[in-house]
Design a protein around this nucleic acid. Structure first.
Length: 437
RNA sequence: GUGGGAGUAGCUCAGCUGGUGGCAGCACCUGGUUGUGGCCCAGGAGGUCGUGGGUUCAAGUCCCAUCUCUCACCCCA
């Protein structure tokens, strides 16, 4: 029986993890600059939470959730609902008026996998709760754009407003009236959408539908006074921050809870999945979930999609170099035991030490040292052990000198640590505070 | 859920109209150097050709089924 990972679930192998760590590091750095705090959330929630927030009739809730139907719980398909549940549950709104929170982790949706889409995928998710001002919308988008920029990625930002419960229903009706005149020219999917989710027709990929949609009523013409003013201030705020963006009145979001501002970061090279990140405002949702009457806005980026873009940009996936500071090559049983002990002492001092116990030839051990990117190799043979010395080879300049083994093992380790540390430029020296032997 | 493409060594892939699985590349191991890495040279190891049936004297190759992966639709980060 051959056991393998199930469809749509992927292992992230060590070489690739380096990229993930880089993305997470840049994300935390930027989010902290914007004064966001991390929150860590459970993966399982009551099914009701998602049904009520994302929308009972959305595809996600209707057919894509991993649910334990006998227990009424579901693996989260997105982060916002869980985050708001935690926010409400812990009464966080009484601590301060505005909360900026982020979380990073896996999400689960039972869709057919394809490029940039998996059944377990990962998002970094940022939410601002308790602020209704348009400047907040702009700040959040600016943060997303800065993140992409600092990762070295290019993506365009498209922005729209979906209105609010005051103005959207009227627009929806107007749109349905328009579409029904052209039912026979729409694709099959769109004919279905007229009754299920007419706004979806706006971003259909079918050329005929796109043609028709061009002359359809625009949501931006149908906004109520408050929404219209909000959107105008979002745009002027983006301009003030120097954020480049494109208004796109045809952009629709899939989750029911969005109101007013919605946006997507669009990238090339992602196959059919062009959105690397997306988000929007959800002004009624917190109350809907039983919380206080507070506004919110947030976005999520797909980490797998960021990884794809980074791979595209930098095709050379060079193996990680310099995994150890020093490699210890032992020849003979006596020397092996001595080196075994020394390697552990070095590691206790904070030095990354590598060693091989299989008694292979010096040549093989040198090769291993080279592969690990060791800066130094300490060569200890049984005969040298008698003379209390070893060879210390600098792997970069190929020089080699004698190294005394007359001191205690602890002193030997400290001496090696000093040599290794002093071989590094000052700004690359590790912080060895609290690591003493 | 619907449609296309693909499964041969750890990875990337050759393999023509059926006739013994490749001196293939990368990676790995050993040797060239009785104890010195990267480059080079030589050698070695590694496979139920996704799986199961069928046609045939003979199937990696043709046919059917099935599984898996992949791209796209739907939908979405």
């Amino acid at each position: 029986m051959k056991i393998q990972a199930i469809n749509g679930f992927k292992d992230i192998l060590p070489d690739e993890v380096t990229r993930w760590q880089h993305i997470e590091q840049v994300t935390r750095d930027i989010f902290h600059r914007f004064n966001f705090k991390e929150i860590r959330l459970p993966i399982l929630e009551e099914t009701q939470l998602f049904a009520r927030s994302i929308g009972q009739s959305t595809d996600i809730v209707e057919k894509e959730m991993y649910s334990f139907t006998d227990k009424g719980i579901t693996m989260r398909p997105e982060a916002t609902a869980s985050l708001l549940r935690a926010f409400i549950e812990h009464g966080m709104h009484v601590q301060q008026p505005v909360h900026k929170l982020y979380t990073i982790g896996p999400m689960f949706r039972h869709e057919r996998p394809q490029k940039g889409r998996l059944r377990q995928f990962h998002q970094l998710d940022a939410e601002i709760i308790g602020a209704v001002e348009p400047e907040v919308d702009a700040e959040l988008m600016a943060m997303g754009q800065l993140l992409l920029a600092e990762l070295g990625l290019e993506a365009s930002l498209e922005v729209n407003s979906l209105g609010c419960p005051q103005c959207r229903p009227a627009f929806r009706q107007k749109l349905v009236d328009y579409l029904e005149k052209y039912t026979d020219q729409l694709c099959g999917d769109c004919r279905r959408r007229i009754s299920t989710n007419p706004l979806r027709v706006l971003d259909c990929k079918n050329p005929n539908c796109r043609e028709l949609v061009n002359d359809a009523p625009s949501i931006l013409d149908a906004l109520c006074t408050d929404c219209d003013e909000h959107f105008a201030r979002v745009r002027s705020s983006l301009d003030l921050l120097g954020v480049t963006y494109t208004p796109n009145p045809l952009m629709v979001r899939g989750l029911d809870y969005y109101t007013r501002t919605t946006f997507e970061f669009i990238a090339r090279n992602l196959g059919a999945q062009s959105a690397v990140g997306a988000g929007g405002r959800y002004d009624g949702l917190i109350e809907e979930l039983g919380g206080p009457k507070l506004s919110g806005i947030g976005f999520a980026m797909g980490i797998e999609r960021l990884v794809l873009l980074l791979q595209e940009k930098d095709k050379s996936e060079s193996a990680p170099r310099n995994q150890v500071d020093i490699f210890i090559a032992a020849l003979g049983d006596q020397a092996t035991l001595k080196c075994f002990q020394l390697a552990h002492l070095l590691r206790k001092t904070g030095i990354r030490a590598g060693m091989d116990y299989s008694g292979r030839s010096l040549k093989a051990q040198m090769k291993l040292a080279g592969r690990l990117g060791a800066r130094f190799t300490l060569i200890v043979g049984d005969q040298e052990l008698q003379e209390k010395k070893a060879g210390l080879r600098n792997m970069q300049d190929q020089s080699q000198e004698d190294f005394s083994l007359h001191q205690t093992p602890e002193e030997t380790a400290r001496n090696l640590k000093t040599i290794i540390t002093e071989s590094l430029p000052v700004n690359e020296r590790p912080d060895f505070t609290r690591r003493q032997i």
